[in-house]
Design a protein around this nucleic acid. Structure first.
Lengths: 148, 148
DNA sequence: TTAAGTGCAAATATTTTGCTGTCAC
DNA sequence: GTGACAGCAAAATATTTGCACTTAA
């Protein structure tokens, strides 16, 4: 039986103290941005938004906090087909994994949850005897409006 | 009915002339490395190997050729969970898409072909009315030997 | 012939690191 | 009090670009 792939939802700050991770003013700002973000953020955007909450936040603290969050499996790192440059995007990991689709024409990002995706991961765990920690399915192509 | 997702197999050089893409000594070297590679190469490895065939090959030509190959859908770009640094890996696109699994402990990269994966892509095309051009499923976790 | 491709060097973009001072616990 | 964390500046890594010269078709 595979372990659950994702974290329970909950406030990142609460998860930090549960795990005994030290909370700082800067981390609080960064976590708050991650929690309230409505779209996928790259490191530069995250920095800019966190600076609004706490101007002392430095770029390196953003990167160090992102590493911390990744290590704890609290966020996912995405490429989104590098639609805007070579950097990465980050999102809060929620209950259920989802697929990301990026429209190569209009740049829109769509998300999609699928039982078949879960089934596929189950197959990989079973057939390859591979214990999945993190998975990422990203698709590039043309959305309904752009392929009309 | 979705279009086929992948290129027919064939020598990259032949595909170039079919499409009227100009062939140069440097591109020939780079393509030959891509064609004969037994594992996933990053830009730096590709450059080093291409230089052995033609010492005049420059880093920028490698990047420009990679862009060309990507634009023509002849190669796939992978992250392989950034197991060694932040760069990308490249592989010849063959008949059938496959999943990449990277062991977070030993660094081994595994590939897996699955009908369920094809079915999942079919579902995305149908349910989201999204025309898929390129797709990438990368999984990080622990391989059979490492999770014993 | 000439548009496309190349090397070279420099620029850009992204991420990481060393160090010294500060703060959470 | 002390070990973990911070900012800052600089380095490291990865990729792109401008330009003048070269070459494939």
């Amino acid at each position: 039986m595979p372990l659950p792939q994702t974290e329970m939802p909950g406030r990142l700050q609460a998860l930090f103290s549960e795990r005994g991770i030290r909370m700082t003013q800067q981390r609080r700002a960064i976590l708050q941005v991650m929690e309230t973000a409505t779209k996928h953020l790259d490191a530069a955007h995250l920095l800019r938004k966190a600076k609004r909450l706490d101007p002392s936040v430095d770029r390196s603290t953003v990167y160090r906090t992102l590493q911390l969050l990744k290590r704890h499996g609290l966020i996912d790192e995405l490429d989104l087909m590098h639609i805007h440059g070579e950097g990465h995007y980050y999102e809060r990991k929620l209950n259920r994994d989802h697929i990301h689709m990026a429209c190569l024409r209009c740049g829109k990002i769509m998300e999609f949850v699928s039982d078949i995706f879960d089934k596929l991961k189950g197959q990989v765990e079973k057939d390859c005897r591979f214990r999945i920690v993190v998975s990422r399915l990203e698709i590039g192509g043309y959305c309904a409006s752009c392929s009309k």
